[in-house]
Nucleic acid binder design. Sequence first.
DNA 1: GTTTACGGCGCG
DNA 2: AAAGCGCGCCGTAAAC
Length: 558
Amino acid sequence: MHIVLDRRPDGGVTATELDAAAMPHGTAAVEASDLAEFVRSREPEHPRWVWSSAARWYPALLAAGVRVERCVDLALCRRILRTSLLTADSELAHEPATGWDDLARIATAAAETPGAPTLFEVGESAPAAALDPVREFQAQQAAAIGATQPAPLRLLLAAESAGALIAEEIRFTGMPWRADVHDRVLTEALGPRAPDGRHPARLEALAAKIRELLDAPRLNPDSQPELLAALRRVGLDVTSTRKWELRELEHPVIEPLLEYKNLYRLFTANGWAWLDTWVHDGRFRPDYVVGGVVTGRWATSGGGALQLPKNIRRAVVADPGWKLVVADAAQLEPRVLTGLASDVNMADAGRGRDLYDSVVAAGVVASRREAKVAMLGAMYGATTGDSARLMPALRRAFPQAIGLVDRAAEQGERGDQVMSRLGRTSPRPGGAWREVQDRASQPGASAADERRARSQARDWGRFTRNFVVQASAAEWALCWMAELRLRLAELGSDLVTAPHLVFFLHDEIMVHTPERFAPQVERLVRDAAAQAGRLLFGTFPVDFPLQVATVDTYADAK
DNA sequence: GTTTACGGCGCG
DNA sequence: AAAGCGCGCCGTAAAC
């Protein structure tokens, strides 16, 4: 059963119940102040709540202590359906852009554009009929049912919508974060916090030393051009100030300079200013953007939750009497590729053991490092170095899997779109791309035109090569998390007192749980991973082993 | 003065 | 060693 929620101009809500054919068979007018109670009262019937976006509707419900099991996030689902090759013939895909597309674009924009309408403003002023969620849901249903392969697409829509709920729940509960521990980490590394955001003592001392060693008393080491010039002035033949280039040089300034860069990064990206901005009441609240990446990965908008450096993970500490269950999927992308290609050889290699070790044991390459580099190269489209050199051996050993990514690359080079396992579709290359290709195929094309077109085609081919794997891996992760969320809810539905997800990072999840539930949570995490594999790849025997750790602090998870 | 691009580096 | 994919964020410098 579906219940569609729509905001009326007077601020109240219309709830429309739909039958299996998505036809309305009853509406209720609900005052805004009664909405949470209304949702709570209907939730035992396990409806799927249909709303413009979870980001818009769900926070207020969570704040009122109400969780929902399932939803349809129309903004996110529209974006998928409007661009999927599986629904390319649908009316939905062909209709002109509407306010729903604005909503979808804003919902999945990683950064807010100043002055642009926010998610909460779009549609508020438009005529109600323009953004009728019942009609929109019916149009989406029609597109999904008429899809070339409805089943995977419907799974994708459900998973994406579950992701939207999870993102809001994580934002609501937050990730446990000990500001005092974070401050200790910073103080140990940088010296005590200086007033007014000024550089702390250690950073200043290192800067002074660098100026002295480079004989540049006015040098600002944060300025790349100034630093580059100063390095060249003392006879160092560098073309950049990147740390891996600096590391190769022999000069007394290199050591303090590398240390300075390291500490400077900590200070600016995750220093006291970050702590003040993003951590409140013992919680870090990541600003996830579901579907923010074209491949379906999540992005973030502010807070940098997807880039938490290892050195501050000590500050992520479970509450007293609680634990963190941290799990990550081992070699997720190659295993997803295995399933995509139904590559039995690769599935055998990955079964019950480290995939890369097996590739070595099979005599394909000489070391685990080479196996990893070769596999990543296959999925990223390496053209040079060790990785490219190892590709032929890998292709011989796993023709099915490598053939799949090679074909995806060829499609991209031609300008064709490619699809993930469940039907998420890569964007079309832009107009400029087509122009360059067209020009190169004209009779009068110069060698330079052809070179440029070729190089650009290869660039896009590397993108589509990676897209099929990365997008399908993102789907596996969404399914994993959605399955886990439902299983965790059986241990207790209250987000504050029961085990709940607090972090997600592409192939890694973290559950904050009362200590006594930790063993059960570990089991559920594994069950959910197995189920995600079945949802994506049916009975094909590809394993998705996890590294699971129950810890007090995130730093101990790996 | 304000916005955009770039270099650099963190994460998967 | 740091390429081959996907990101966000910082500060500075360049462009407007």
